[in-house]
């Protein structure tokens, strides 16, 4: 039995009803939006589903949409079912004033460092994470660099003058 976007979407809506919002299919990959508080039930249901078997978490990342009032930070999950060779994407939005979302480390062990990286870059706090601290940047950094309002370059460097680099 091969999975299609319709089968998965219908099963999700049957099970979770109004939590599944905005289903789209950019470049044929099913993309749905879920509320941040429901990520653990939905993802563990998808993993343990007898037919779908989404055993693999391909990727977990964050995106910052400063223009979205109230829901600026997004956590994106990419799931993969090997048996059916089927991928899907799940988005969960949180607000930048209180960016908290439950962790999925219990469901997929690979989420551990991926959530730390998302916290390091965007400041999204994962409730229940065993070790939520910075992973790639220095521990004493006091801002979250991937947010759109911060510049790329280190502003304290003296040897590169912005006017020569077109900035």
């Amino acid at each position: 039995m091969s999975l299609t976007n319709e089968i998965v979407l219908k099963a999700l809506i049957d099970q979770f009803g109004e939590h599944i919002k905005d289903p789209t299919e950019p470049y044929t990959m099913l993309t749905i939006t879920i509320p941040a508080s429901q990520n653990v039930p939905i993802l563990s249901w998808l993993r343990d589903h007898r037919d779908f078997q989404f055993v693999f978490l391909t990727d977990l990342c964050g995106v910052h949409y400063p223009a979205n009032g109230g829901l600026e930070l997004a956590v994106i999950y990419h799931l993969h079912s090997f048996i059916h060779n089927y991928r899907m994407r799940i988005k969960a939005f949180v607000s930048s004033l209180n960016p908290e979302i439950p962790t999925i480390t219990e469901i997929y062990a690979s989420a551990n460092w991926m959530e730390r990286e998302t916290y390091d870059f965007f400041g999204i706090r994962f409730k229940g994470h065993p070790q939520l601290k910075r992973i790639l940047n220095m521990d004493d950094m006091n801002y979250f660099p991937m947010l759109k309002q911060y510049p790329l370059e280190d502003q304290l460097r003296e040897d590169k003058e912005d006017k020569f680099f077109g900035r």
């Binding site: 990727d59 690979s110 460092w113 990286e117």
Partner: peptide, 9 residues
Amino acid sequence: RRPCFIYYQ
């Protein structure tokens, strides 16, 4: 999505 980062955990 960097494979080394994910499996080094």
